[in-house]
């Protein structure tokens, strides 16, 4: 599998560490325990496109947000996570 790193270009997926669903946002402390519980443990598991986090550990060390379809692994978008949410 190839991952389109916005910084390095297309790279072998073996260079990356997978983290998962990119949608949870860390609650601003102080926050209810339930908000942190959701952030830490609850993840969507859709059959379809999902934004998810990958870390280019053996490359530029950027965290990347990919939009990947879980049904066929087609990657439709990739951006540096530090540059904020896509529209």
């Amino acid at each position: 599998m190839r991952i389109p790193c916005p910084y390095c270009g297309d790279r072998d997926s073996q260079e990356f560490v997978y983290r998962g669903d990119a949608s949870p946002v860390r609650p601003a402390d102080p926050a209810e325990e339930t908000e942190f519980f959701d952030y830490v443990y609850l993840r969507e598991n859709p059959a379809g496109p999902i934004d998810e986090l990958w870390y280019h550990a053996q490359g530029c060390r950027n965290w990347i947000t990919l939009t990947r379809d879980t049904r066929d692994h087609a990657i439709s978008a990739a951006r540096l996570t530090s540059e904020g949410k896509s529209a």
Binding site: V17, A57, R61, N62, L80, T81, S82
Partner: peptide, 12 residues
């Protein structure tokens, strides 16, 4: 990886 996550993902 954790430090990069904190500075790029949580608090960019």
């Amino acid at each position: 990886q954790h430090i990069d996550f904190a500075r790029q993902v949580i608090w960019p």
